[in-house]
Simulated scan of single mutants.
Amino acid sequence: MTGIPGSAADLIYRFTCPVCGSSPLVDGSVREDMLNRGCYLCDSTVSEADFEAVRHD
């Protein structure tokens, strides 16, 4: 996530589920929700390592 300015809430992330392989783009609020609740598709636990900042919104 380095090299992209702005707050975490303003970033767009590529999420890649370590279990089901789902790979959507998500915003900062969805990222935070997924870190608390898990993958929306398979309910597996996810970590910050599963998100890569791809652009500033």
Rank of each mutant, 00 (worst) to 15 (best):
T2I: 00
P5E: 06
G6N: 01
G6C: 02
A8C: 09
A9E: 13
A9R: 05
D10C: 07
L11Y: 10
L11H: 06
I12C: 04
Y13W: 07
Y13L: 08
R14Q: 14
R14M: 12
T16P: 07
C17N: 03
P18R: 10
V19N: 14
C20W: 00
G21K: 09
G21E: 05
S22R: 03
S22Y: 05
S23L: 02
L25P: 02
V26Q: 04
V26C: 10
D27K: 06
G28F: 11
G28L: 12
V30L: 14
V30Y: 10
E32W: 15
E32Y: 06
E32D: 15
E32V: 12
D33V: 12
L35N: 10
N36S: 15
N36T: 14
N36C: 09
R37C: 11
G38F: 00
L41G: 01
C42S: 04
D43T: 04
S44Q: 06
T45G: 11
T45S: 11
V46A: 05
S47R: 07
S47H: 12
E48S: 04
E48G: 07
A49I: 13
D50G: 03
D50T: 07
F51Y: 02
E52V: 15
A53F: 12
A53Q: 15
V54P: 09
V54Q: 14
H56A: 05
D57L: 01
